[in-house]
Every structure is written in structure tokens, then in C-alpha cells.
């Protein structure tokens, strides 16, 4: 049950600086913990996050075991044209999730 929460302004003026907020559901298991019987719990984290604005990559981040569960990533960009933001999270154990949001630039 993976789910994402995205916060992108619906409207913005051309040239305006906008904040984009993303929250992805993920346990971010570090790989450093052990079970009660001493076995290592395998690492299971998101390793990369990327955002494309009308197909052009505008933000990318690598994630590591020290990042908390359910990573909350926010960043700023300049609203240039109406269109779509595509978000992509990739991680261990074949984890791959996408989400998108639209914006109207006036």
C-alpha cells in the first residue's frame, strides 16, 4: 500500500517561485538493525527521487539509510509554463512509484 501526497500550487504567475512538497509512504529500513534472534533486517530504502516539469528534470535527490521513514521532500522552482510535474521514487526490492500534478501558469 504505497501512497504519495503531493502539494503543488494549482495556479501561479509566470516567473513566480513556487514550493513543491512531496511525502512518500516508505518504511526506510536502514539495514543496520537486527531481529530479536540476531539476523540482519535487510536494507529497504528509497534510493532516488526525481521531479520532471513538462518532461525536463528540475530536481533530483539520492536518499540514504539515515533518512527517516516516509520521506518528506520539498523544493522550489520557477513557474514557467502550464503543464505537468511528474515525480518518481525508486528504491530497494524493486520499489518504483510515480505521481503527477498539474499547474496552470498565467
Amino acid at each position: 500500500m504505497a501512497s504519495a501526497l503531493i502539494n503543488v500550487p494549482k495556479r501561479a504567475k509566470a516567473g513566480e517561485i513556487i514550493e513543491i512538497k512531496t511525502l512518500m509512504s516508505h518504511i526506510m529500513e536502514t539495514g543496520y538493525r537486527r531481529t530479536a534472534t540476531g539476523e540482519v533486517i535487510p536494507r529497504d530504502i528509497i534510493t532516488s527521487f526525481a521531479c520532471r516539469y513538462n518532461g525536463v528534470e528540475i530536481f533530483r535527490a539520492d536518499l540514504f539509510p539515515a533518512i527517516a521513514a516516509n520521506p518528506f521532500i520539498t523544493f522550489f522552482t520557477v513557474a514557467t509554463e502550464s503543464g505537468k510535474f511528474d515525480f518518481e521514487w525508486i528504491g530497494d526490492e524493486g520499489f518504483s512509484e510515480t505521481a503527477s500534478a498539474s499547474i496552470t501558469v498565467e
Partner: peptide
Amino acid sequence: EDTANPGMLWVLDGEA
């Protein structure tokens, strides 16, 4: 803020 509150991820799952 609902888009920063990780509890909302469970709300989404719960709705499904």
C-alpha cells in the same frame, strides 16, 4: 499541514 503530516498516508490507505 495535510501534505506534510505522514498520518495522512494512512488516511489515504484507509479510504481505499
